[in-house]
Amino acid sequence: MIATRTPFAWGEADAEQELGPPLRRQVIQCALSRICGVCAESLGRPIAFLGTPEEAARNAFHCPPMHVTCAEDLRRHAGADPRWGITTTSGFELVRPGRDDADPDVRFEPNSLLQDP
């Protein structure tokens, strides 16, 4: 199903190839319009972020917010990063990169992490 479709925020990615980083413009659109980075529909609750253990530890994610089910689908995508895990939250902060940041990409900081479903 989703594995053959290009997720919204990866508009240019080839379905069979590694996904790579999402597109900045779409990432910002997802964040502000509060839509899912995979299906582009309104986000639900909780909000899911896909990220590597390092991203989770830093609480700074680069993939756009998603539905939990979309995040699970994307994790099974042929081009997904095998180290991705899912973090759920109620809210997040959008952080635009600053000139001097070590990290030049737009990122998300969940502000209300969830323990229970």
Binding site: L32, S33, R34, I35, S42, L43, G44, R45, I47, S90, G91, F92, N111, S112, L114
Partner: peptide, 28 residues
């Protein structure tokens, strides 16, 4: 999303519908 941090599903950007003609999704 100003109040999403409260983790209250009743006051959340994902499902708030406001009392006007425009659908929330399009406003967002």
């Amino acid at each position: 999303g100003q109040w999403d941090w409260m983790n209250d599903p009743e006051i959340h950007s994902s499902n708030w519908e406001w009392d006007t003609a425009q659908p929330a999704e399009q406003w967002k």
